[in-house]
C-alpha cells in the first residue's frame, strides 16, 4: 500500500500531506519566534529608564531589506502560479529572482552586522565615553620593537586587566571615527539627537578603561538584535538552499510529476512567506521602536 494524498488533496480535509506538514511546522515556528519576541518584550520593559537604545540601526537599510524580502515573497508566489499554469520558463525566471533577492538580503544583513562589529565604545579613564567606528590602531611589535599601524583591531575587547598586549603586539593608541560624550546615556537615543558631529578621535592606551565593540555582548538590545536577526537569517539561508535545490537539481521532478513539483513550490513558498512575515515584525520592532 502506498502513502496516499502525496499530491492530491484528501477529500475530507481538503489538503494534501505536505501542506498540512508545512503548516504544522510553521505553527511551531510561530511559537519559536514567539518565545524570542516575548524575551524582547521582557528585556525592553525591564530595562532601566533611558537604557534601551533607540535609533541604533540604519532605517534605510532596514527598509531596503523589507522591500527586497517582500519582492522575493511575490516572486515565489508567481513562480508557483507559473507552475500551476504550466509555464516552466516563467517559473525558472521568477525562482531565480527569488534566489537573487534572498542572497541580496543576506548581503545587506552582512553589511549591517559588519557595521556593528567595527563600531566601538571606549570607556575612558576620566569617565567619559568615546564612541565610533574603528579607523586604525597603532601597535608596538615587541619582537621587532617598532611601531606599526593596523586597520583592524586585534581581539574583540580591551580592558585594563588584559593590558592591551595580544600576541606580542602592544597597543599604543586607537583612532575612531566618532565622538566623545560625557555620559553613556548620551549614546542611547540617537534619534533624539538631530545632528551628531563626527570626527577622528585618537585615544592613547593610558586613557582607555574599557573598550568593546557593538557585538551581542555589548547590551541586551544588541543581544536580542543579533539573536533574532541571526535566527531569521538562518531561516533565509535554509530557505535559499531549498529554493536553490528546487530551481536546480530538484526541477527534474517537473517532467515526471508536475503536480507534485507544483506542490513542492507551494510548500516552500509558504515557508518563504512566513520568513517574510517574521521580518515584517522584526523590522519595526528593532529598527523603528
Amino acid at each position: 500500500m502506498e502513502i496516499p494524498y502525496t499530491s492530491k488533496p484528501r477529500p475530507d480535509t481538503g489538503v494534501y500531506n505536505a501542506k498540512i506538514g508545512i503548516w504544522l511546522f510553521l505553527a511551531s515556528e510561530v511559537m519559536l519566534f514567539g518565545g524570542l519576541f516575548s524575551a524582547y518584550v521582557l528585556l525592553r520593559v525591564g530595562a532601566a529608564p533611558g537604557e534601551w537604545p533607540h535609533g541604533w540601526l540604519n532605517v534605510g537599510l532596514g527598509t531596503l531589506n523589507t522591500l527586497i524580502l517582500a519582492l522575493s515573497a511575490i516572486t515565489t508566489l508567481l513562480a508557483w502560479v507559473a507552475c500551476k499554469v504550466g509555464q516552466f520558463g516563467k517559473f525558472k525566471f521568477f525562482h531565480a529572482c527569488t534566489l537573487a533577492l534572498a542572497l541580496t538580503f543576506l548581503c545587506v544583513k552582512m553589511y549591517e552586522y559588519h557595521d556593528k562589529w567595527i563600531h566601538y565604545e571606549i570607556k575612558l579613564v576620566d569617565g567619559k565615553f568615546a564612541d565610533g567606528h574603528f579607523e586604525g590602531a597603532v601597535y608596538v611589535d615587541k619582537a621587532a620593537n617598532k611601531e606599526l599601524e593596523e586597520h583592524s583591531f586585534r581581539g574583540m575587547a580591551f580592558s585594563e586587566v588584559s593590558g592591551g598586549v595580544t600576541n606580542n603586539y602592544e597597543l599604543v593608541s586607537v583612532t575612531l571615527e566618532g565622538r566623545i560624550v560625557a555620559d553613556e546615556k548620551d549614546l542611547m537615543d540617537l534619534r533624539a539627537q538631530k545632528h551628531i558631529e563626527h570626527g577622528k578621535v585618537t585615544i592613547e592606551r593610558s586613557q582607555i578603561k574599557h573598550m568593546e565593540n557593538y557585538g551581542p555582548w555589548h547590551n541586551t538590545f544588541l543581544a536580542i538584535y543579533f539573536t533574532l536577526t541571526g535566527l531569521h537569517a538562518l531561516h533565509i539561508l535554509g530557505g535559499s538552499i531549498v529554493i536553490g535545490y528546487l530551481w536546480g537539481p530538484g526541477r527534474k521532478m517537473w517532467k515526471k510529476d508536475p503536480e507534485r513539483f507544483t506542490n513542492r513550490i507551494e510548500v516552500s513558498g509558504l515557508f518563504w512567506h512566513f520568513v517574510d512575515l517574521v521580518w515584517i515584525f522584526l523590522f519595526p520592532v528593532l529598527y523603528l521602536m
Partner: peptide, 18 residues
Amino acid sequence: AFVVAGYLMHLLSEKKMI
C-alpha cells in the same frame, strides 16, 4: 502581515483544518 498572510499565503481562502 495580514496582507502578506492573506493574499500571498492564501490564508483568506484556506481549508478549515488549517
